[in-house]
Simulated assay, not measured.
Amino acid sequence: MLSWLLLHFLIAAVGTLLARRYALQRDLLDHPGERRSHQVATPRGGGVAIVAALLVAIVALATRDPSQRWLLGGFGIGLVLVAAIGMADDHRPLPVSLRLAVHALAAAVLAISVQMASGNPWLAMLAFVSAMVLTNVWNFMDGINGLAASQALLVAMALAWVLGGSWALLAGALAAACAGFLPFNFPRARIFLGDGGSGGIGFSIAGLGTVAAMPDSPAALWLLLPLSAFLVDAGLTLSMRTLQGERWWEAHTRHAYQVWARSKGHTSVTLLYASWTATTVAVMIVLRTTPVSLAVALCVVTYLAASVVWWRLERMESHTKTTGDK
């Protein structure tokens, strides 16, 4: 296991270095602006190294474990589709409709492979919905240094604990790859994930979570705990912007983590989010063999608490704007 983790850590680290060099040569830079949370022009697209590490893992595991080839194949095809459209968008902005259409195709491929492997249409539906949601949530939440990659690392560790066999190794590869990328993105960002990387991570977490639910449906409920910070922040912010008639797909700085970062800084907020998620991972590991009713109760309490924090941060931002206008 140690050599497996080290391999994917190195693939991601070396790949990130190469991606940074490529981005600088091609002038693939995110520039500061009203809809950005950073202050200096920064290369983007480093997440391709994480995707590359995952694809190496998928090929190796499919060769080693023929019984999982179809499911791993569907996972890999979907990952390539999401990463490819994201990387294309990193080079030249694409219509949101095209990006969502490719995401839907990737989610459908994953869902079909889950249906073939499990024979359970509900799990196939879970695969499709979670892939669509998490692919975009990780993109929305990739706005300050280290946040998206550190959250992925923690969630992948939780998935590796829950899963077994080849899928635990794949989750471990994702965690190791995120660890290989993070030194280039946190605490100072020398490169960003880009849409290809953030979308690929979200899709991978969705696929791994669905596989975890195949033999053990309650696992899907427990996995909602480590996802709570991202799902609440992205979900409530998206709902608020939609109700206010804003274009939800456009870049902005209204997420709770962005509001918080303006007063506390990127490093503090990333560490605070990591502390929240690490706590939920610990709770999940300790209590996941307990009755499902406890998982439901803990999810309700956790999401309500996260929603209160989001609401307070939103009020703080509104008050700041009102005071500034006066």
Score class of each variant (00 low, 15 high):
residue 137 V to S: 06
residue 60 A to T: 14
residue 174 L to Q: 12
residue 148 A to S: 15
residue 95 P to W: 07
residue 108 A to D: 01
residue 115 Q to M: 14
residue 68 Q to W: 10
residue 116 M to A: 15
residue 109 V to I: 15
residue 186 F to D: 01
residue 110 L to P: 10
residue 188 R to N: 12
residue 113 S to H: 02
residue 73 G to Y: 11
residue 75 F to E: 02
residue 108 A to E: 01
residue 105 L to G: 08
residue 86 G to A: 04
residue 162 V to W: 02
residue 172 G to C: 05
residue 128 F to T: 03
residue 104 A to D: 12
residue 117 A to D: 13
residue 149 A to P: 04
residue 145 N to W: 13
residue 141 M to H: 12
residue 92 R to L: 09
residue 111 A to G: 08
residue 66 P to M: 04
residue 106 A to Y: 10
residue 120 N to C: 04
residue 134 L to H: 02
residue 156 A to W: 11
residue 118 S to H: 06
residue 200 G to K: 03
residue 153 L to Q: 03
residue 169 L to N: 07
residue 143 G to H: 07
residue 156 A to T: 07
residue 118 S to C: 10
residue 135 T to H: 05
residue 91 H to G: 15
residue 101 A to V: 13
residue 119 G to K: 01
residue 69 R to P: 00
residue 174 L to A: 07
residue 178 C to S: 08
residue 151 Q to V: 12
residue 65 D to N: 10
residue 201 I to K: 03
residue 84 A to I: 07
residue 199 G to H: 08
residue 70 W to N: 13
residue 121 P to D: 08
residue 149 A to Y: 00
residue 147 L to S: 05
residue 108 A to S: 15
residue 140 F to V: 05
residue 108 A to R: 00
residue 142 D to R: 03
residue 72 L to K: 04
residue 72 L to S: 04
residue 114 V to L: 09
residue 190 R to G: 12
residue 74 G to A: 05
residue 164 G to Q: 12
residue 94 L to Q: 15
residue 130 S to Q: 07
residue 160 A to I: 06
residue 103 H to G: 15
residue 85 I to C: 04
residue 123 L to R: 03
residue 134 L to I: 11
residue 161 W to R: 05
residue 148 A to H: 13
residue 80 V to S: 04
residue 70 W to A: 14
residue 76 G to V: 04
residue 190 R to L: 14
residue 73 G to C: 06
residue 82 V to A: 09
residue 129 V to W: 04
residue 128 F to I: 03
residue 184 F to S: 11
residue 126 L to C: 09
residue 192 F to H: 01
residue 181 F to W: 00
residue 156 A to D: 13
residue 130 S to P: 08
residue 97 S to W: 15
residue 153 L to H: 04
residue 63 T to Q: 13
residue 85 I to M: 09
residue 191 I to F: 09
residue 190 R to K: 13
residue 173 A to S: 15
residue 71 L to Y: 04
residue 170 L to Y: 11
residue 69 R to T: 14
residue 73 G to N: 06
residue 108 A to Y: 00
residue 135 T to S: 15
residue 134 L to C: 09
residue 133 V to P: 05
residue 131 A to G: 05
residue 133 V to C: 06
residue 78 G to T: 03
residue 145 N to E: 14
residue 60 A to P: 04
residue 128 F to P: 04
residue 101 A to C: 12
residue 112 I to M: 13
residue 96 V to K: 05
residue 78 G to Q: 02
residue 129 V to Y: 00
residue 97 S to N: 11
residue 181 F to V: 00
residue 78 G to E: 09
residue 103 H to W: 11
residue 195 D to A: 05
residue 168 A to F: 10
residue 120 N to V: 10
residue 199 G to Q: 06
residue 194 G to P: 11
residue 185 N to T: 14
residue 115 Q to C: 06
residue 156 A to N: 08
residue 162 V to R: 06
residue 86 G to R: 00
residue 149 A to C: 11
residue 90 D to T: 12
residue 166 S to C: 02
residue 95 P to C: 11
residue 152 A to F: 00
residue 186 F to Q: 02
residue 152 A to V: 10
residue 118 S to W: 06
residue 91 H to N: 12
residue 71 L to A: 07
residue 79 L to K: 01
residue 101 A to E: 02
residue 121 P to C: 03
residue 88 A to C: 13
residue 72 L to I: 00
residue 181 F to R: 00
residue 124 A to H: 11
residue 147 L to I: 14
